[in-house]
Simulated scan of single mutants.
Amino acid sequence: MGLEGGVWQVRGGRGPVGEIVVDEADFPWLHGTFTPGPGFAGVQDLFARELALADDEDWEAWEEVHDEIHRQVSLISPDGPVPEFLLHIEGDRAWFRWSDEPFDKE
């Protein structure tokens, strides 16, 4: 799977949410330029709230927002969908990690 230079897609029920062109790989995180798509407006507030809750260390509320992000969007690698991910979007930057297996919920 290509990392730097790879194009990852964020998709949602309302259409393409955006694309991330990876420009930095800092295991386990990938960072890149985010270009919003037509569906981003529908989830933009969720991503802003997720970051604010993380800054406030309100992990219970953060978990609820994170789960809602998962219900509304999917992350597609250059090789296809990934089953589990943690994605942050702020302005024209995105950073994320992913797993080929679902995260342990315990």
Rank of each mutant, 00 (worst) to 15 (best):
R11C: 02
E106R: 13
W8T: 10
W95A: 04
A54N: 03
G5F: 10
K105H: 10
V21K: 13
G91N: 02
V10E: 05
H70L: 15
M1T: 11
G32N: 04
D104A: 11
P16M: 13
D58N: 14
A94H: 02
E57C: 13
E24Y: 05
R97Q: 14
L51G: 05
V21W: 00
E106P: 00
G37I: 03
I89P: 02
E57T: 11
E63R: 14
E64L: 14
A94C: 05
I20P: 01
D58F: 03
E106Y: 03
D104W: 08
D45T: 13
W59R: 03
A61M: 05
V82D: 00
R49M: 11
E60A: 13
P81H: 06
F103L: 08
P81T: 07
H70K: 13
V10L: 11
D26G: 00
L3D: 12
D58H: 09
V22F: 07
V7M: 11
H88N: 13
D55Y: 11
E4R: 14
G6S: 14
D100G: 13
M1H: 10
P102D: 03
W95R: 15
W29K: 06
T35C: 01
A25F: 13
D67N: 14
P78V: 12
P81E: 09
A61K: 12
G80V: 08
L46G: 05
R71E: 15
L53A: 08
V21S: 10
G37V: 02
G39H: 07
P81A: 08
F85C: 02
R49D: 11
W98P: 00
V65S: 08
V65M: 08
D26C: 08
V7G: 05
E84D: 15
Q9W: 07
I20H: 02
L3G: 08
A48L: 13
G91M: 02
L86E: 15
S77L: 07
H66W: 15
A52V: 01
F103M: 07
W8A: 10
V21Y: 00
L30S: 09
V43K: 04
I20A: 07
S99N: 12
G5V: 09
E19L: 10
G15E: 06
F96I: 04
R93S: 06
D67F: 05
D55K: 12
I76G: 03
D45F: 12
I20G: 04
D45S: 14
V65W: 03
D58T: 02
W29D: 10
A48M: 07
G37K: 01
L51R: 15
A61V: 01
G39A: 06
D100N: 08
I89G: 05
H88W: 05
F47I: 02
A54V: 07
V21C: 09
G18P: 02
R49L: 15
H70P: 01
E50T: 01
E24N: 07
E68A: 12
L51W: 03
